[in-house]
Simulated assay, not measured.
Amino acid sequence: MTLLDADCYAFQDLLTPVEREAALALREFMEREVRPVADEYWDRAEFPHHLIPGIAATGVVGAAWPESARFENSAVFRGWAGLELARVDASFATFVGVTSGLAMTSIGVGGSEEQRAEWLPRLGRCEAIGAFGLTEPLSGSDVARGLRTTATREGDTWILNGAKRWIGNATFADVTVIWAKDTADDRVKGFLVRKDTPGFEAVKIERKQSLRSVQNADITLTDAAVPESDRLQRVESFRDVAQILRLTRTGVAWEAVGIAVGAYEAAVRYAAEREQFGKPIGSFQLVQDKLANSLADITASLGMCVRASQMQDEGRQNDEHSALAKAFVTARMRETVGRCREILGGNGIQLDHGVARHFADAEAVYSYEGTRDMNNLIVGRAITGRQAFV
């Protein structure tokens, strides 16, 4: 059985039989449970909480960590899972990416054995939900130097003050990883802030026009007290944060491929059904040209994601590898969803025809976890040996 029709060069053959079975089960869940309600929840800017047990049962959440993995798997499989999620609903893919990727990777990379044992199994079963608080109202691309949230140690307690913005899952997360500067040494440290912590407040951001089902929040921290036992014990500087982002950035590239595939599949269906001048528009040269260019972009993007994930498993992935994948693939995604919307004409802006939501969601994925410009500068630094961020 073909896992993905848009996989022109059969990259899916790299999956093991166990991984392939899990990917097919994930696809079945997404088609049966998520697709029928995705447009409705997106339109209302609400999250389908009732689907969380179902995605937990697929075993894709927390698949990267021995404390939560259900079966042996590769980075290619985990990327493919992100593709399958985003192919149907990028909002749902972002929910999984935040808790399984950003939050769990922060704990998996930066946490002590005790912290990993406490949180990774629960997060992997979605008995707890995670969020990741790095971006701030006044610090986005410059967050490495411009982080304003502070942490002051008082005995065995840290007092956190500051604000975070665009934090996915934060309105309902059980734990949010908050990154703050230590006022004693000016170095970045990570903290596991539980949802009932006094002084921690998360307010939903309204009026979004992309990833509308994702519950992004503005977070304020006002003298929020966090015990030393909830400080990520293996994080000592922003270099450790960068390591986490390197591991998750490739996952965003995979999600971008999924968005492109979702729009492409909808355009192929539409081209077969829509008639103009007495025949299906799929018989017209201009439409076929758009579809062929879209398939080419998807195929090139898949190849880049596959190799970046293989290098991750081999321990050879550097910052420039994940940055190049994220920058290139999200740019190709943006072009692909644009072409697919063109194929649908005016119907391309209506949710009912399968492209409009992908078209809107692509804009957020294009920007988060590093804009194209910033990721290209990471690559440029690797090429020239010179930093050009400022």
Score class of each variant (00 low, 15 high):
1 M>N: 03
3 L>M: 02
3 L>H: 04
5 D>Q: 13
8 C>N: 04
15 L>I: 06
18 V>I: 10
26 L>R: 08
27 R>C: 01
27 R>L: 04
28 E>M: 09
29 F>C: 12
31 E>S: 11
31 E>C: 09
34 V>F: 10
39 D>Q: 15
43 D>Y: 13
49 H>N: 00
51 L>Y: 07
59 G>F: 13
62 G>Q: 04
63 A>Q: 10
65 W>G: 02
67 E>A: 10
68 S>F: 08
72 E>V: 08
77 F>W: 12
80 W>M: 15
82 G>P: 06
82 G>K: 13
86 A>M: 12
89 D>A: 12
90 A>N: 04
93 A>I: 00
94 T>K: 10
106 S>F: 03
107 I>C: 07
109 V>Q: 12
111 G>N: 09
118 E>H: 15
119 W>Y: 15
122 R>P: 00
127 E>W: 06
131 A>G: 07
137 P>Y: 05
138 L>N: 15
139 S>E: 07
145 R>T: 13
152 T>S: 14
152 T>V: 06
156 D>W: 07
162 G>P: 05
168 G>C: 08
171 T>V: 14
174 D>P: 06
174 D>M: 04
177 V>Y: 01
181 K>G: 00
194 R>W: 14
195 K>P: 00
199 G>Q: 08
204 K>G: 01
210 S>K: 10
215 Q>N: 12
215 Q>L: 11
219 I>S: 03
220 T>K: 14
223 D>M: 09
229 S>G: 06
236 E>G: 09
240 D>C: 07
244 I>T: 15
244 I>L: 09
247 L>I: 13
249 R>W: 01
256 A>E: 07
258 G>R: 10
260 A>F: 02
262 G>W: 08
263 A>E: 03
267 A>T: 09
269 R>E: 12
273 E>G: 01
274 R>W: 07
276 Q>R: 14
291 L>R: 06
298 I>T: 03
298 I>G: 04
300 A>G: 09
304 M>G: 02
308 A>H: 00
308 A>S: 12
315 G>Y: 15
317 Q>T: 10
319 D>Q: 14
320 E>C: 05
320 E>R: 11
322 S>H: 15
322 S>E: 11
325 A>D: 02
329 V>A: 02
333 M>G: 02
336 T>Y: 12
343 I>K: 05
345 G>E: 13
345 G>I: 08
346 G>N: 13
353 H>P: 01
356 A>P: 02
357 R>C: 02
358 H>D: 01
366 Y>H: 05
369 E>M: 09
371 T>I: 06
372 R>K: 11
377 L>G: 01
378 I>N: 11
384 T>C: 09
384 T>A: 07
387 Q>G: 07
389 F>H: 08
